[in-house]
């Protein structure tokens, strides 16, 4: 591997795409498990218990995920600051909307909004889970997950924030999904149009699904 890869613009772009792919895959499995909570409390508890106690997931995949999130965020902010420096004098008249869509031009805004939401999300779910297991040492409580979930989604303010966050996620993915393919060098006359359609579907269906889950539990458990 060349020394300059991880510090070059093209190398970093590829790393942003690879971490993006990883997060896309993570989001999909997160969605599938969450969706179980709509279908059956038992199935959701059982899967969550497995995810929360399996050593491979806990000690290998969880740190990798955390690193992936932080890397994608940190590198995204760093590159954006670098990009802003590349044009010290701004245009007096600029029409960026004439040649590129809003989503592609505002990845940093949608990205930071998602990260702010992740703060709340970690406070709600991840930190209590880590506290339970690694501070209080309680590993075996296989029915807590569903209760915890519906308890959190009984609060209308929280549900509102979740809905808004997923709108930002959708905007981020509308550009990010297809952009990641381009960054790793995948651009094909035949397949790229399919990837773009697939990306649009993913960017709409997954966030909409998460919104549905939050509203579903709010309606069923807020009384």
């Amino acid at each position: 591997m060349s020394k300059g890869f991880s510090t070059s613009s093209v190398g970093r772009k590829i790393l942003m795409a690879l971490s993006g792919f990883f997060l896309l895959f993570f989001l999909l499995q997160h969605f599938v498990i969450n969706f179980l909570s709509v279908l059956s409390a038992d199935a959701f508890n059982e899967t969550s218990h497995f995810m929360g106690t399996n050593p491979l997931i806990q000690y290998i995949l969880q740190p990798v995920l955390l690193f992936g999130v932080l890397f994608h965020l940190g590198m995204g902010i760093y590159l954006d600051l670098q990009n802003k420096k590349a044009r010290p004098v701004k245009y007096a008249m600029n029409k960026p909307g004439e040649n590129a869509n809003w989503m592609s031009r505002n990845m940093i805004i949608t990205g930071i909004m998602i990260m702010l939401f992740l703060g709340l999300h970690f406070y709600d779910f991840w930190i209590p889970e880590i506290k339970d297991k690694f501070i209080d040492g309680i590993w075996d409580n296989p029915t807590k997950y569903y209760e915890h979930l519906v308890h959190k989604f009984a609060d209308p303010v929280r549900v509102g924030i979740y809905v808004l966050a997923f709108v930002f996620l959708a905007l981020h993915l509308l550009h990010g999904f297809q952009s990641a393919f381009q960054s790793v060098g995948f651009n094909h006359r035949k397949y790229t149009p399919i990837i773009k359609k697939l990306g649009t579907l993913y960017a709409i269906i997954i966030p909409l699904g998460f919104i549905f889950i939050a509203i579903f539990h709010f309606i069923n458990h807020s009384h």
Binding site: S8, S9, L79, N99, A100, S104, S183
Partner: peptide, 22 residues
């Protein structure tokens, strides 16, 4: 060429596609 491009102080590509249009 990429190394020289980075040295010159150009920004990073975010695939907005504006370049292709213009």
């Amino acid at each position: 060429m990429v190394e020289q491009m980075d040295k010159e102080g150009f920004g990073n590509c975010t695939n907005t596609g504006a370049c292709e249009v213009e």
